[in-house]
């Protein structure tokens, strides 16, 4: 069973067991435009919630990704290094950035469900 949650920083986390897969939202990739570079965290790194964890750069500008929850990085999507455009093509799927083993699953409760996130996007669009 998986559950997808969203942060105000336009990131998503899909939790399966105690591991969450994270990326940027469709709205975020559209705002950024053509993505040309990503910097991913090393497996084994411990991150606090809201800590800077990855970088995404479009033709226009660089942006940081923040860890939506605390935990240990267990994997990152190396396919993005050679083909960052995957984030534009499939932000919520093949364009995932990293996986975190959650240290405090209770932090998920403070993140938005899809309806709340879509309302936030509607406000910002």
């Amino acid at each position: 069973m998986s559950d997808i949650r969203f942060s105000e920083e336009h990131e998503w986390i899909r939790v399966d067991g105690d591991v969450g897969t994270c990326g940027i939202t469709e709205f975020a990739q559209e705002q950024l435009g053509d993505i040309v570079y990503v910097e991913l965290p090393e497996a084994g790194r411990q991150v606090a919630q809201n800590e800077e964890i990855a970088v995404v750069e479009s033709v226009k500008a660089a942006s940081e990704l923040y860890a939506p929850v605390a935990g240990e990085v267990v994997d990152s999507n190396q396919a993005l290094v050679d083909d960052p455009a995957k984030v534009n093509a499939d932000a919520m799927g093949e364009g995932w950035f990293f996986k975190i083993r959650l240290s405090d699953p209770g932090q998920l409760d403070a993140l938005m469900d899809e309806a709340a996130y879509l309302a936030l996007v509607a406000e910002q669009a």
Partner: peptide, 8 residues
């Protein structure tokens, strides 16, 4: 994710 701020 921080939004780019290219338009002052």
């Amino acid at each position: 994710m921080a939004q780019p701020t290219d338009a002052a």
